[in-house]
Write a protein that binds this DNA or RNA. Sequence first.
DNA 1: ATAAAGTTAGTTAACACTAACTAACATATT
DNA 2: AATATGTTAGTTAGTGTTAACTAACTTTAT
Lengths: 193, 193
Amino acid sequence: MNFTERQIEIIDASKDLIGRKGIQNLTIKNLAEKMSFSEPALYRHFKDKTEILKSLLLFHREIIKSGIFKILNSNQSSLEKFQKILKFKFDHIKKNPAIVMIIFSETSFQYSSVLSSIVSKIMKQRSKKIIELLKEGQKNNEIRNDIDPEQLATIIMGGIRKTILNWKLEGFKSDLNLEGEKLWITIEKLIKK
Amino acid sequence: MNFTERQIEIIDASKDLIGRKGIQNLTIKNLAEKMSFSEPALYRHFKDKTEILKSLLLFHREIIKSGIFKILNSNQSSLEKFQKILKFKFDHIKKNPAIVMIIFSETSFQYSSVLSSIVSKIMKQRSKKIIELLKEGQKNNEIRNDIDPEQLATIIMGGIRKTILNWKLEGFKSDLNLEGEKLWITIEKLIKK
DNA sequence: ATAAAGTTAGTTAACACTAACTAACATATT
DNA sequence: AATATGTTAGTTAGTGTTAACTAACTTTAT
């Protein structure tokens, strides 16, 4: 996961293309055009297109992972941690709409298998973290004890995704951070003791 | 929305193709092969590919709509209605994995605008119905009054979608109806008074 | 006899990717 | 210091494949 400067430029350009018109807008032609060089030049920096997409995903996973890691290992109540994680996520998504496009595309093209396996892996890891945090909160008597943490995680993650999806379907016009705050208020009411 | 016999056969074949390998598996070539006729024969029944997809979506919307209508207008408590709706949805999805594939996909770019506008319209209508039902439940003192119905709807729909997505990512192996029941138990605990 | 439903044989356009080559620069050898 | 060798990052021109779709003709059913 050590990228050259040029590779990062290409990843950024890919992000931009996807963020504008979805993953189907990421073609070698468009990417080369955006980079202001010829199509074959891309292959000096990445083996193939899948490798570009993969790099884009892994690059972002690292950012989110370290952000969440910091929150989880901080000195706050579980509910506060939850709030911070939500805020962090919505913030990051707002700045990187490309991620939304990828996360909600899943199926796309021939590289779908590579992509969806990475996406589903990331989702599983996140789910695990949330379940741990819920259990911690239940131990600390902050969160209701009568509910299965796994189901709760499904609902919370589902709520986050749905909020993001609504934002996308409205053409990214609404204030995602505000929607995130509203979501948190509801979630907190539902889960706290 | 009056389809000929042959059109319905084509819609069914499309459903099958999508259900097996996702929306990218719905090509004119594959569809003609499945129908055991040549590719141009398709164009005797539908103007173009987008029209096929549109028909597929509208066809199903009707089924779900009338199913939910029956439940909403029945003589049950709001919570019971909720449970029935969830059951109905998971049942229908289980029988029609193609719908999942479409709902969770962002299609290639010619027909994406048509498709996503239909999908988002359907989602909005569903959301409206759920919000109404939540309000009804709050009036009847079945459902907690201290929570914004709109936010609650987002969380519930998100939970449903996430459950379905998990099922998809596990290769449709788990028992979706069972997962649906577990989800309902949690939702009920969270929202009831 | 006519209209509906099919056929064959194509078109056009987009796609990812490759072959062959080159200018500019970096490093090693004498 | 000058030459030889190698590398990086690009070029032009072109490949094969797949996609949706069409024109023109044929068969089938009423």
